[in-house]
Amino acid sequence: MKQDYFSSNNIKYIDYKDIEILKKFINPSGRIMSHKRTGVTSKNQRKLAMAIKQARFMGLLPFVAK
């Protein structure tokens, strides 16, 4: 069983500016990894998805990577 990355690192608020963390949860083509692959709790997966989408809007992360 994979542990929740955010609760094990004591991260309460997932920030869209923290690209280094968010990059761990996107696949090479830029898509958000599934809940099954990340092992993150449902609550944090929703927050994670939101943060990645906000980072994409600000041009920090790609919508599609080649």
Binding site: I11, K12, Y13, D15, Y16, D18, I21, Q54
Partner: peptide
């Protein structure tokens, strides 16, 4: 966006 007062960058 709405956020929290604490420093959010880990």
């Amino acid at each position: 966006i709405k956020t929290v007062k604490e420093n959010t960058i880990a």
